[in-house]
Amino acid sequence: MYQKSDLRGDSPVSIIGAGIAGAWQALLFAQAGHAVTLYERSDAEMTLSTGHWAGGMLAPYCEAETSEPVIGRLGARSLDLWRELFPNTPFNGSLVVAHPRDRADFERFAKLTTGHVRLDASGVGQLEPSLDGRFRDGLFYADEGHVEPRKLLPELHARIEAAGGTIKFRCDVTADDLDGIVIDCRGLSARDEQKELRGVKGEMIIIETNEVELSRPVRLIHPRWPLYVIPRGDSKFMLGATSIEAEDTGVSVRSALELLGAAYAVHPAFAEARIVEFGSALRPAFPDNLPRITVRKDKIAVNGLYRHGFLLAPALAELTLAYMQRGAIDNEVMRCV
């Protein structure tokens, strides 16, 4: 389906929010020749951005366990865009393992997802020598990748500026403050306009040890949450993330026990690791936990990326650009009001 659009290649575009959703919008619009201004309430450290606290997983196959097919479709397109625009993104796959007692959940996970091969104990050991002899079997999702949000966001910002875009940090604006085409990517802050948004709390811990080496994210089957141990370089690992229907801040003792327990279950040597940081953030989600591009004439809102910010942002940016340039409408994601 197509709608008429008067946008030309040089029309100025304002984007609010330099987090992962807004930054990808800014990059694609700037590269397409638009004069882009990106407004961000945080400073360049981006600590107010949900993405700053994210795992940065690019794992559409694993996510299929709890999400709808549209996440897989947009995720697959995003993986292409990550590969194309950020060729250094590590795509070493991800490994799923389980405690023997969570056997039934492990089998359920295997049944509900595709894109994996089953590894026996020696296969797990070949893939991750640190885990040799620790797990009887595992699932390997070879096509998945991950990024380091705290390195990636500054890199994205630099690329936007290199493509001619302007970024204004410490600049808290709303769509009403700006003229012309506006793309609102404020996440949970956009609640004033998108009442259905809610925050889903995610908690994470960063630990440091040189006793364990991992080449890829390892996901441990947990009855409630997808828990990952993600190698971050410099002997650091991120443990994340919980998913709780609460809108408060901080990390609860229970969550800390579960996250640290997951690391310990992956490898007992993590018990000797140093805790570097505890953190939490609220993921913006609509009631169906699916992303939404809301179009109101020349004001567009991209929101509800929930747990899938890094996985969905490139594909959503491409959809917005296609709408603005050609009037292309994606019925699963877009709503015109």
């Binding site: 948004l197 709390k201 409630r224 609460a246 408060d248």
Partner: peptide, 16 residues
């Protein structure tokens, strides 16, 4: 405990 986070659950979830 598990869901309502001891009463801190977001209003949005409760209204659902």
């Amino acid at each position: 405990r598990r869901e309502a986070a001891g009463g801190k659950t977001g209003d949005a979830f409760w209204s659902l």
